[in-house]
Nucleic acid binder design. Structure first.
Ligand SMILES: [Zn+2]
Length: 538
DNA sequence: CGCCTTTGACCCGCGC
DNA sequence: GCGCGGGTCAAAGGCG
């Protein structure tokens, strides 16, 4: 019964665990780049044998009869994901009827009965189709969420490797920076730079800060701690310093340094732009909404969440749809988790913390801050699949990861590439899916109004003139040229590795061990997906 | 019953 | 000082 009609269906009752270590069904995102168009649903359908059976066992075809009205929505969804084979179910549903009774008792009756039954049969089919499409829609949401998470994983790895490479040549950069003088830099940014490095400011207005940099940061910290402990005191016992205490001893670093990092990490924001119709993107954490505001210049309200996976976890996030394209969800993370994370949450957490670290370290050695006092923005590579943007606009330095255009060049209904200002027609080349382009731009609040402002991000060693002219490869001014190539190769190798998740986990562990403070649960537990799967565990 | 969302009030920094 | 905007609090109610 219904075996064939259900064929393309995936079990969406549980999140697809693309990153789960114990799961054999891995989705290789790199396969999507080379025209294979192996988009998430497709791959999942190909390997999801178990899922099929599960669906057969639990799917209730007639539980919702009024879903025909969803047709429009589904249609839209199909359009949205036209190359994701989401509409696969439509054909299959009509290929076979599981109502064999229709044909039998009818042969002796008139044509009217026959057509009536036929009609009923068709209606049944239609219902099934709609239900099926509903399922597929949910599945698509799931998959796209997981896809975003995985893509961010990749970004994390890229960043980490870039950073490692950069660290090797950091001295060179410091020397470069030395001759940048007498320019005002946003104070916050200067603080961050100070807190993570020994850069000295020559700006007279920030002389005081420079002189008492650590004291100032300590001040900031105490402010934050104060606020956090206030919150905690309400929810819990005076464990307010848990998130401090469990980290300070770990890295044998002077306490105030660690505190400084905490303070700055709390301030740094990592913004993720992803196309999602869900109210929140799936990041594996538990969140509790604590506020909602109408933000200026955006018809969509901004929602405020805090992490509830552990009492006193300082991590907050803001979720808001982009005004220009409300299918794009902007999630801004702030802070570092003070507790172990389930595997499902590792991707986002590691990405955000790595990005934050990158932002901080980038701020110290880059000359950009001096070149663009109000905002710092970089593009690693134009017209590629994802974009990481760093901005130091007040009050919070923010790094934005743009995941709105998937690697396989699939575009949403709007088909526009954010921040693509025509420098490079996107059609000219098809970058590897893991490429992480950065475009330098200046934006003025609204977001739509952007303007070029080429700059060099020290962390990525971009050469200003080369960035826009030679898209297909990384063009880095320094020894990093071969570096990025090897990086791509390494990434590809990782992707091809059957132990992809293991490699990923190792890489992430190394990242986290690198000292930004997130703890990761050793990833051997399978139930995390469901365990954290209820409400705002996205 | 515990956890969550909702939502108006409140706080705070900033610019005028 | 005042208004504005971003961010947070906390009471009230909903939900499973
Ligand atoms: Zn947390």
């Amino acid at each position: 019964m219904g075996k064939y009609s259900l064929r393309p269906t995936l079990d969406t009752s549980e999140p697809l665990l693309l990153l789960n270590q114990n799961n054999n069904t891995r989705w290789n995102p790199f396969a999507m780049g080379g025209g294979t168009a192996a988009s998430p649903p497709y791959v999942a359908a190909a390997e999801g044998e178990d899922s099929h059976r599960k669906v057969l066992a639990e799917m209730d075809l007639f539980s919702t009869r009024n879903q025909i009205s969803n047709k429009v929505v589904v249609k839209n969804e199909n359009f949205h994901a036209n190359d994701l084979d989401v509409n696969m179910g439509l054909n299959l549903l009509t290929t076979r009827s599981d109502r064999s009774l229709v044909g039998d008792g009818i042969s002796s009756n008139g044509d009217e009965n026959r057509t009536t039954n036929k009609l009923a049969n068709l209606q049944n089919e239609l219902q099934k189709m709609n239900i099926e499409n509903q399922r597929l829609k949910e599945m698509y949401l799931q998959v796209s969420n997981n896809y975003n998470a995985l893509q961010m994983h990749l970004v994390t790895l890229m960043q980490q490797q870039e950073q490692e490479l950069r660290n090797e040549s950091i001295h060179n950069q410091d020397q470069k920076v030395d001759h940048q003088d007498s320019v005002t830099v946003p104070r916050q940014f200067m603080e961050l730079g100070q807190s993570t490095n020994e850069m000295t400011s020559r700006d007279s207005s920030s002389e005081e800060k420079t002189r008492s940099g650590s004291a100032l940061n300590a001040l900031e910290l105490s402010k934050n701690v104060d606020r956090d402990s206030k919150t905690i005191g309400r929810e819990d016992t005076p464990d307010s310093d848990v998130w401090m205490s469990n980290k300070a001893p770990k890295l044998a670093i002077p306490e105030n340094v660690e505190q400084t990092n905490e303070a700055t990490m709390r301030k740094v924001r990592v913004s993720v732009r992803a196309r999602s119709e869900a109210p929140m993107i799936t990041d594996g954490c538990q969140w509790r909404k604590y506020g909602q505001k109408m933000a200026k210049g955006n018809p969509c309200p901004r929602a405020y969440y805090r992490c509830t996976m552990a009492a006193g976890c300082p991590v907050r996030k803001q979720v808001q749809r982009w005004a220009d394209d409300q299918t794009i969800l902007i999630t801004t993370y702030e802070g570092t988790h003070n507790h172990p994370l389930p595997p499902a949450a590792v991707a986002m957490a590691s990405t955000t913390s790595a990005a934050a670290t990158m932002l901080l370290s980038g701020s110290i050695s880059s000359a950009d801050g001096f070149m663009n006092p109000n905002l710092l923005a970089h593009t690693i590579r134009p017209n590629s699949s994802s974009i990481a943007t760093i901005s130091a606009s007040a009050p919070f330095p923010t790094i934005t990861l743009d995941l709105t255009h998937p690697p396989n060049t699939f575009q949403g209904p709007n088909g526009s590439i954010p921040f693509d200002h025509g420098h490079q027609p996107a059609s000219q080349f098809s970058p590897p899916p893991f490429a992480m382009p950065l475009q330098a731009f200046h934006h003025h609040g609204g977001g739509g109004d952007t303007q070029y402002n080429q700059s060099r991000f020290s962390g990525l060693q971009l050469s200003n003139n080369k960035v826009y002219n030679q898209p297909p490869q990384f063009h880095q001014s320094q020894p990093q040229v071969s570096l990025s190539n090897s990086l791509s190769a390494a990434t590809a190798a990782i992707a091809a590795d059957p132990n992809f998740t293991a490699a990923l986990a190792a890489a992430i562990t190394s990242i986290m061990g690198g000292g930004n403070g997130s703890n990761i649960i050793p990833s051997n537990n399978n139930e995390t997906n469901n365990t954290y799967g209820s409400k705002h565990d996205q």
